[in-house]
Nucleic acid binder design. Structure first.
Lengths: 115, 115
DNA sequence: ACCGTAATACGATGGCTATCGTACGAGTCG
DNA sequence: CGACTCGTACGATAGCCATCGTATTACGGT
């Protein structure tokens, strides 16, 4: 199941111990979603969906954020009027120590390598 | 039919600098293929396809090995009569330092956690 | 040469998924 | 209220993919 809904506009997230490695890897295997996660990691803070410049429509963007959320990679919270997206770094680091950093490092390295 | 075979039986592998992170993650996001890679890592040596006990048919096994090979995760070589499968740990470590170990560690940790 | 084993190729199929367009709901600001 | 923005929901579509069964090829032993 998912975390309890406090507000009427809460979105379903997997609890920490419900996060599985395979869905996480699948979520990150899409270039668009990997770009989102990299952006979140470099900013180190929460961002709204519209702050990302992705070459896809809003519908597709929503889809990608949902995949990331359901895999447990990001957290989506309504903070006042805006919907903020943040990396679940604490949970991921607890479950899979060093994995997120290794993945981000690998992505950075590849970005440099490919120019 | 593909390009002319130098030997009668050699398989196409991506060169080291052709390996991309996304296909690697996609390859490892399948439970069957992750199990294969984990087995290869624990054995630390090359294995034939038939040495794996997977709950799928031979056709499907061949498919999974091909996905892993084309992503650059494993190397498949005909050594005499047997077809040996080995992890491309050297190439992966060079391209993405620490990633493979982090992934294997995460998989181990999840296996322990789920019993 | 013949047989058995190992692995691939090919074709089929059902399911997943990335993408889009349009329509809708929630919230802000005039 | 009305208009505008942001994000979601739904339906559709095309492509990919995990799986299977069967036929076929490659090689070693008898």
């Amino acid at each position: 199941m998912t975390s309890p809904a406090v507000s009427s506009r809460d979105l379903p997230h997997p609890a920490r111990d419900e996060i599985r490695l395979e869905p996480v890897l699948h979520a990150l295997s899409d270039p668009m979603r990997l770009a989102i996660v990299r952006e979140l990691a470099t900013v180190g803070d929460e961002l709204t969906c519209s702050q990302f410049e992705l070459p896809v429509t809003k519908s597709t963007t929503t889809h990608h954020f949902r995949v990331l959320r359901e895999a447990g990679v990001i957290r989506q919270i309504y903070r006042g009027t805006a919907k903020m997206n943040g990396l679940r770094k604490d949970d991921l680091d607890d479950l899979f120590p060093g994995l997120l950093d290794a993945l981000l490092g690998a992505a950075d390295r590849q970005a440099v390598r490919l120019g």
